[in-house]
């Protein structure tokens, strides 16, 4: 059994310790907001926070998170209030198909934790997620809006 916490809730999971965290979250914890896009840490659709830092959960074995705390997209809003990044995403109508947006939002939220008012260059350096619909223009606007909120 591997114990860790997800969105503040303790989890104890029976799994092959090499199983990627992504699949533990999706198939055993039952939180499907975190998405599979590539499995090789390229696209970022699987981004979650590990102790507050953005990580690509498809490439982290579950054994590596034993005793640690994870936040997924489902845990971002608090007390039924959208996180400021989610609110900015809503106000700026960012998502198209939406599949990559869980990861994009988690990456943006982590960026704002680290750099409250990022420049365009800092956004470019830190947001490396792939969006095939091409929402980047709105993503940038929404990050700036969330930073100002």
């Amino acid at each position: 059994m591997i114990a860790f916490s997800v969105n503040g809730k303790a989890q104890s999971i029976d799994a092959d310790p090499t199983t990627p965290l992504l699949w533990i979250l999706r198939e055993q914890v039952g939180l499907t907001g975190t998405k599979y896009g590539c499995g090789i840490a390229q696209c970022g659709a699987c981004t979650v926070h590990l102790e507050g830092a953005p990580v690509r959960s498809c490439s982290i074995p579950v054994a590596a998170v034993a005793g640690r705390s994870i936040t997924t997209i489902e845990g971002l809003a608090k007390d039924n209030k959208l996180h400021k990044v989610q609110q900015a995403w809503l106000d700026h109508q960012v998502p198209q198909c939406g599949y990559c947006q869980s990861g994009m939002i988690m990456a943006a939220a982590a960026l704002l934790n680290q750099i409250p008012k990022p420049t365009d260059a800092q956004i470019d350096d830190n947001i490396t997620n792939i969006c095939r619909c091409g929402t980047f223009q709105q993503v940038r606007q929404a990050i700036h809006a969330a930073a100002a909120a």
């Binding site: 959208l82 989610q86 109508q93 599949y99």
Partner: peptide
């Protein structure tokens, strides 16, 4: 106008094909 289908895409609530769960389902 704002889209009708945005909110679920911001919270992880929207169910895509990959997210479907059925009782007794195998993969």
């Amino acid at each position: 106008l704002a889209r009708l289908d945005t909110l679920g895409k911001l919270t992880g609530a929207q169910v895509y094909g990959t997210d479907l769960k059925l009782p007794g389902m195998l993969n």
